[in-house]
């Protein structure tokens, strides 16, 4: 009888000595409310520490404690700590991203010459409604809508929350819209396609009083797009007195200059790395 009562006392003591425990679910979806079962008894403090929050509130140990959805919007590791009179117990859990519904789109560059092979890079980062990066594979639809042209699209599967494509710019200058879509998100960026380097640069000369007027034909790239005004064209004259170079910006599609030429001279033209024809004038 004495042994039995001793055993009962010991059992009671062991049970009484058991601290409060806390058992959150191991995995939670972002923006979802949960209930955390606890054991123990009496007044206690519940702490919830997550990526963007750290809260403390009074609870009753042994009861189920509810955590509102807005406290669990940020994906990552959370620690729930329950501190009662007999000590603290903690348990961690992960909040996983919700469904993909947002995109962050990086398009580079904002201006690109026409016909640039793989000249445009488009990267889409996939997020849920709470800006958590969605790591599971999701199809992202990329689209290109040139001005006055029809849309072209392609699907790419996001890996670890990232999908990307490289595009060649069109042959025709003008703005083009680049988009990426997932869920309800559709992000669009505009890339300005500009004429590439001048092509078939040609000059002609005519007499104006005592000078020569040296003038280019309308300056275009190899696809026939007008090279923008302001692009510099260099005229170089070589005569008996030596070499003279004059830089002239294109105005209204052409570049021209009046040169005083005495005797015979050779005139060449260049724009960037592109060289044009050569003229012999004077004599």
């Amino acid at each position: 009888m004495k042994t039995l009562s001793s055993f009962a006392i010991l059992l009671f003591a062991v049970l009484a000595a058991q601290g409060a425990e806390i058992h959150p679910p191991a995995q939670v979806t972002a923006g979802t409310a949960i209930t955390i079962p606890t054991s123990g008894s009496g007044d206690a403090d519940l702490y919830l520490v997550g990526p963007a929050s750290a809260s403390k509130r009074k609870v009753q140990a042994g009861s189920d404690i509810s955590v509102e959805s807005d406290q669990l919007e940020h994906a990552g590791r959370y620690v729930a700590i329950l501190c009662a009179s007999d000590g603290c117990a903690s348990s961690s859990f992960f909040v996983n991203p919700a469904a993909a519904n947002r995109l962050s789109l990086l398009v580079h560059p904002s201006r690109v010459p026409v016909g640039s092979g793989n000249g445009i890079s488009t990267v889409a980062f996939v997020f849920d409604n709470f800006h958590n990066l969605v790591l599971k594979p999701e199809p992202v639809k990329f689209s290109v809508l040139p001005k006055g042209g029809s849309e072209v699209s392609a699907d790419r599967e996001a890996k670890d929350g990232v999908a990307w494509v490289r595009l060649t710019s069109a042959k025709k200058e003008g703005p083009t819209k680049l988009g990426a879509a997932i869920g309800h998100a559709n992000e669009v960026r505009v890339v300005q396609q500009v004429a590439a380097d001048a092509c078939n640069l040609r000059i002609k000369a005519s007499r104006v009083k005592n000078n020569y007027l040296i003038e280019t034909d309308p300056v275009r790239d190899c696809s026939g797009n007008s090279v923008p005004d302001g692009t510099v064209v260099s005229f170089t004259m070589t005569d008996a007195e030596g070499k003279t170079t004059v830089d002239v910006p294109i105005k209204r599609g052409v570049a021209k200059i009046e040169m005083p030429i005495k005797g015979r001279a050779r005139v060449t033209v260049a724009s960037g790395v592109v060289t044009g024809n050569e003229l012999e004038v004077g004599g």
């Binding site: 750290a54 990267v123 990232v162």
Partner: peptide, 22 residues
Amino acid sequence: IFYAPAGDAMQLRDRAQLDMQV
């Protein structure tokens, strides 16, 4: 794990070892 073609973003995976105290 990912370096954007234009060099404007990079994605990393980090295996971190920490001791945490609250």
